[in-house]
């Protein structure tokens, strides 16, 4: 059993340090690695995990992603698994399956556990204890450079801090609001208006917003907003078009902010969604392409 690795780098360093850390792990054959990622909302945790997966996917090693705080809204996991088809994913109630998956590995593997800003940093301590039986586990905090001189909960928690040039600084007093939207189809102009209102503060101060939204032409779009780095991203999701009836796949919205006005949010979202009759009309207008 290899003892848990500790980063030698605790100061600023950004990507340069990250590369050195990766080399350190690889040269030491310390390749059964589980990284627990924490940090402020909107700092880029999932993006950082995605970059890590991209770096490792060519090696053919098994990889997993687990977000214990995703609840019924597996936004990040869904997107990652759509992009990386070999990535194993687990729901919050599948911790035992995750441990079995790790235990079954007979070679190098990589894993990432992402803790949302709403999660206690001790979350998953029991899981990590179990995982440490067969993998190196480390805590990586992603923090904005502007917090370098401050004391945050992540400073003490992290084995390694990755400093990022982001303007995100708020982590106290934030509220999380999210809602599954599976089966709902949005009228595009309504969605555009709603998202504009949302990001301009009509429903409270939103510092982070993201969601998967189904459109009547069968496409699904990912909308992503971070108050520290506007404007929003509108990205088509690489999955098949849904042509008939209500999409039987995951979609949903997640917001982090203050003074979020839940009834108004729900009303606005409801007003953007097509009825069965409207959806049928729209789907007739978008013919199914030949295979």
């Amino acid at each position: 059993m290899v003892p848990p690795a500790r980063s030698l780098l605790t100061g600023r360093g950004g990507c340069g340090n990250l590369i050195i850390i990766l080399i350190f792990f690889c040269v030491g054959l310390d390749v059964m690695t589980v990284t627990v990622v924490g940090g402020l909302s909107g700092v880029g945790k999932t993006h950082w995990v995605r970059q890590q997966i991209q770096q490792h996917q060519g090696q053919g090693d098994p990889m997993f992603y687990f977000a214990p705080g995703e609840g019924q809204l597996p936004l990040d996991r869904t997107l990652l698994q759509l992009e990386f088809s070999d990535l194993a994913g687990f729901t919050p109630d599948q911790e035992a399956d995750l441990i079995r998956w790790v235990d079954a590995q007979r070679g190098p593997f990589w894993g990432w556990i992402e803790l949302g800003v709403h999660m206690d940093l001790d979350s998953g301590a029991f899981l990590l204890t179990a995982l440490r039986e067969c993998a190196d586990c480390r805590h990586v905090a992603l923090l904005p450079e502007s917090l370098g001189n401050l004391s945050t909960p992540w400073h003490l928690w992290a084995d390694e801090v990755v400093w990022l040039p982001t303007a995100v600084t708020q982590w106290e007093g934030l509220r999380l609001w999210r809602s599954p939207l599976s089966g709902q189809v949005f009228e595009p102009r309504s969605l555009e208006t709603f998202w504009q209102e949302l990001t301009l503060g009509a429903y409270g101060s939103v510092i982070r917003g993201k969601g998967l939204f189904e459109l009547p032409d069968g496409h699904c779009f990912y909308l992503d907003f971070c108050a520290s780095s506007p404007p929003s991203l509108y990205l088509p999701v690489r999955q098949g078009r849904w042509h008939h009836g209500r999409p039987q796949r995951f979609s949903g919205i997640e917001l982090v902010g203050t003074d979020l006005q839940r009834p108004e949010l729900i009303q606005a979202i409801t007003d953007c969604c097509l009825t069965d009759e409207q959806l049928a009309y729209h789907q007739q207008r978008f013919p199914v392409p030949n295979p």
């Binding site: 309504s190 208006t193 606005a268």
Partner: peptide
């Protein structure tokens, strides 16, 4: 009403 949202409102 250029959109469903506008129409409902």
């Amino acid at each position: 009403y250029p959109s469903l949202l506008a129409e409902r409102r």
